[in-house]
Simulated scan of single mutants.
Amino acid sequence: MLGIIYETVYAPGALWYFLLAPVLLALTQAWRIFTKGETQPLYQKKQNPDHDIEPLWDFDFRKVDPIRYQPYKTQGHVTMGIQKRTRSEWIRMDHGYLNRIQERLPLIREKPEFTIGTGEKVNPAIEELYEEVMIKYLPARFPTMFKAHGKVARNLATGSTYPLSMVGLTHAQMLAYMGENVEEDFYFMCPDADDQYRLQGYIACFPGGFLSPARVGESVREIHKPVPGYDKKLGLSVDRYFGRMIPGDFIGRMNWSLQVDGADLFRTDGNNYYPGTEQTVADEKADPEFDECFLRIEHQTLTKLPRTSAVIFTVRSYMTRLDQVKAEGDGKALAEAIESMPEGLGHYKMRQYWGAKVLPWLMEDVSGKGVNRKSG
């Protein structure tokens, strides 16, 4: 992760920093390099912009494994792990698709107060994202899964349909359709009159331990207000980068943590420790059952919409049982990465509760071949 993250993890608002700051710090460093004349900035306009979507004509999601994710080996906790992405890589499909969609449906229909965020300031961006993802992207990228028939598109995997026109749709319905057809969550950071980017909306079925409605209306700086040194070290450069992002650019990284009390992906609390609050920690955190312990991975992407200039923070979540990680021979690498966390970060991740039991178990030698990963 980041070398500076240990300074922030005790702050009540630090989860958003943990999710966004690795991406934003990388962009900040790019800006600083540019101002020194060492290289071209990430936000420079492309000479030959390529926004094409590569169609997958022979695609069968049932035969596709999740992407190989081992960020605990490739980026640890002291690097940013930023990579450029293409538009074709924005939305992913694999053999876990139907299970994850079935997990999302009741959350959208029964918990809309937590999963769907609309409003006057974000509604134009919702319309634009619906057009980009539902009308343009899905039928073009996955023609064997999403077929256009007149005014609707049919999802051949689920048997459902959705409109190819926004006429008559509410913005909540647009977000619901997105949440019912892709596994990614979307967070909308919209510019205000002062060019401050503020969280104004979301479709968030799989939050990793934070309450999305509580953050609506906050600027990037306000979200990070509790973070020591953020405004001085990062605030201005991050604001500049958001304003200078070029639509069509995609950058991504992996974020990871342990979840030791079940595989459910909808978590508005309980995955992180916040000192100085009235938070209670369940006994199971200190004595977890190994078959209830999971590696939680988030594939995170930032891009900017062309018309509204909203910055879209896209999060795709994966869950893998720790015994699968161990069977694949990665238990020791994962345990070493956890042990190497700065004290504050480890505390924030609740290592002080489950570490005494989980880490020695992960370090044990195993033999045999690994098993297939499951996506979430």
Results as ranks from 00 to 15, higher is better:
213 P>N: 01
71 P>T: 09
145 M>W: 08
190 C>P: 14
357 K>C: 05
27 L>H: 12
173 Q>N: 11
290 F>N: 02
223 I>P: 09
336 E>Y: 06
231 D>F: 06
150 G>R: 01
30 A>D: 15
297 I>E: 07
62 R>L: 02
252 G>Q: 03
176 A>E: 12
131 E>T: 13
173 Q>Y: 11
40 Q>W: 15
15 L>H: 12
94 D>T: 11
341 M>Q: 14
36 K>W: 14
204 A>D: 10
181 N>L: 01
46 K>W: 13
52 D>L: 06
265 L>S: 15
33 I>Q: 14
190 C>G: 04
285 K>G: 04
270 G>Q: 04
105 L>A: 02
120 E>C: 00
310 A>L: 04
284 E>H: 10
116 I>D: 01
341 M>K: 02
354 W>S: 09
364 E>I: 03
285 K>H: 11
53 I>L: 06
215 R>C: 07
140 A>E: 10
26 A>E: 12
67 I>F: 04
83 Q>S: 15
30 A>S: 15
152 V>N: 06
13 G>I: 03
150 G>E: 04
139 P>F: 00
132 E>Q: 07
178 M>F: 06
18 F>I: 12
220 V>M: 07
158 T>R: 11
270 G>C: 10
85 R>K: 15
130 Y>A: 00
55 P>T: 01
221 R>E: 14
309 S>I: 03
49 P>I: 07
181 N>H: 15
63 K>A: 08
261 D>A: 11
327 A>I: 07
225 K>R: 14
200 Q>I: 05
4 I>K: 09
206 F>E: 04
359 L>W: 06
92 R>D: 11
189 M>E: 02
331 G>S: 03
69 Y>S: 11
344 G>S: 10
